[in-house]
Computed example of a mutant assay.
Amino acid sequence: MLLSVIVPCYNEEENVPIFYEEMMKNSAFLEQEKLELEIIYIDDGSKDNTAAEVRKLHEKDERVHLVSFSRNFGKEAGIYAGFQKAKGDYVVMMDADLQDPPSLLPEMFSYIKQGYDSVATRRVTRKGEPPIRSFFARMFYRIMNKISKTEIVDGARDYRLMTRQVVDSILSMCEYNRFTKGIFGWVGYETKWLEYENVERTHGETKWSFWKLFLYSLDGITAFSTVPLAISSIMGVVFCIIAFVAIIALIIKNLIYHDPTPGWPSMVCIILLVSGVQLFCLGIVGQYLSKTYLEVKKRPIYLVKEEL
């Protein structure tokens, strides 16, 4: 039996050896469970010496593997590559910055032995995050769970231990526009959730700015909900009704009172409002159209420069 550990990395040269050492400290349960180990570092086009650090580890431990991309393709591509390269009967995905504590692995595997298909983790606190970022993150999960049939748990991490069956199901979803948190929920299976408090990064800074997280949330909404399209349609119908009623009212007013319609400033405001709504709805349609455009081109999700 083999346990595959997938570690997506982007500019994590300081954390690569630290993560390996921490994994070795918490690997005693592998012998007890008669599990072999492989660690797959996915270098997502790092600009530092991340790949070089992994090569050093590979030289002293053949269980360490490297998949290095030709450029930065994003964490979603790194996760997908890790799933494709993993050969394990069990697969776990973890961040290199140790925000996903390896010390939880023995407990996670104990639940797999009890019959769960996957064991996932979620943060119960967002300690260390800016308040405004935490607020919008919680709002995203609330909105997403209202407009989508796929459940996405608030505070869910990518840190998750899965059986081979779950991994194969995820790999069967070979879409280009990937939103892994949604994919985890969509494939289903019996999942055990473990809660833990937020852990600070060991070194470096997060690669996720507020703007990147906002764009990522848009990817999630367009990937797992068509409600925004319905909203844009409803808004179009509502404004047509309002316009029709307003026209009738103006005609009646002119016939009765012979009062021409005054007030060009108010008319300009109305035009700007309606135009803004039209552009907003067009933007929603454009988001879905752009995703379709990227899908039909069928470009590879990632390109590998080096593999060990």
Rank of each mutant, 00 (worst) to 15 (best):
V7W: 06
P8S: 06
P8D: 05
C9T: 14
C9L: 08
C9Y: 07
N11M: 12
E12F: 03
E12L: 12
E13K: 11
V16T: 12
V16D: 02
F19Y: 04
Y20I: 08
Y20G: 03
E21C: 01
M23V: 12
M24A: 14
M24W: 07
K25E: 06
N26R: 07
N26A: 05
S27Q: 01
A28W: 10
F29S: 14
F29D: 14
L30M: 13
E31D: 15
E31P: 02
E31Y: 13
K34R: 03
K34F: 00
L35K: 13
L35T: 15
E36K: 11
E36Y: 02
E36R: 10
L37W: 09
E38S: 08
I40C: 10
Y41Q: 07
Y41M: 04
Y41D: 04
D43Q: 11
G45L: 02
S46Q: 03
S46L: 08
D48N: 12
T50W: 08
A51W: 02
E53V: 10
E53L: 01
E53T: 09
V54N: 01
R55L: 07
K60R: 02
D61S: 04
D61T: 11
E62M: 10
R63P: 15
V64M: 00
H65S: 00
H65P: 00
H65E: 00
H65F: 00
L66N: 10
V67I: 11
V67K: 12
S68N: 12
N72C: 13
N72W: 07
F73R: 06
G74W: 08
E76Q: 13
I79R: 15
Y80M: 13
A81K: 11
Q84Y: 06
D89A: 02
D89G: 12
Y90L: 08
V91Y: 01
V91W: 02
V92P: 11
V92K: 06
V92N: 10
M93K: 15
M94L: 04
D97Q: 05
D97I: 05
L98N: 15
D100Q: 13
D100P: 14
P101E: 13
S103Q: 11
L104A: 00
L104V: 00
L105W: 02
L105F: 05
P106A: 06
E107G: 04
M108A: 06
F109I: 07
F109P: 10
F109N: 13
Y111P: 09
I112Q: 09
K113G: 00
G115Q: 04
D117I: 00
